[in-house]
Design a protein around this nucleic acid. Structure first.
Lengths: 102, 102
DNA sequence: TATGTCTTGACACTATTTGTCAAATATAAG
DNA sequence: CTTATATTTGACAAATAGTGTCAAGACATA
């Protein structure tokens, strides 16, 4: 399974871009991007959006990878992961139909 | 749908316990417990475990509620929630079968 | 060696989470 | 109407986590 860091690094290298170049486009230090690509540091949502533009990666795809990474990390050491995900699905449905902002 | 705060408050009241009493048992300020029960503040995992013991709520049940709450909150405003949850499921499976610690 | 790229770790700054406290509110009893 | 008790609220401090900066080290290539 490809990690989000691998996705980013693969795309960057396939475009022949240097860390320095992409980092400049993202307005961050190359060291941060290096860490993100090696999954040593987690990107935030803003960075995900910029990355999808700079590297021409589908925005929804990268976002889904990003959020599912966070979730998997949250529940990886729980022995009731399946149940948790089913519950989460119900709650999301509930929030979507009942939230004030919708 | 019952929130985690409601679960806790219902159980505490059904046991005839005061905020002050349960808070003392949890070693926290009653104000915090009050906020947790009204979903104004999110409990952390340690508190969840203590709560399940003090109020005699099934530990797995309360943990599942707690984690699914966090997940639902994370993805509530995303329009690809279903896809994210499916991806997360795959990643959890992957982590379970490939992690070093297992 | 000399150059350019990437990695690593220490550090500071900021944001978020968590804890503390006292005043305000609510409820019930005398 | 007081008094007492329980809960709620908001301001604030402390602790933790996230983020950014930088320079030195490692690595490859010419």
């Amino acid at each position: 399974m490809e990690t989000i860091g691998q996705i980013i690094r693969n795309k960057r290298e396939s475009l022949g871009l240097l860390l320095r170049q992409v980092a400049a486009s993202l307005d961050i230090d190359p060291a941060i991007l290096s860490k993100i690509e090696r999954n040593e540091r987690r990107p935030n949502k803003e960075l995900i959006l910029k990355l999808s533009e700079t590297l021409d990666i589908d925005k929804e795809e990268l976002l889904a990878q990003y959020i599912s990474d966070k979730i998997a990390y949250d529940i990886a050491d729980e022995n009731c992961a399946d149940r948790v995900l089913k519950l989460a699905e119900k709650k999301v449905q509930y929030l979507k139909t009942h939230s004030v902002s919708n």
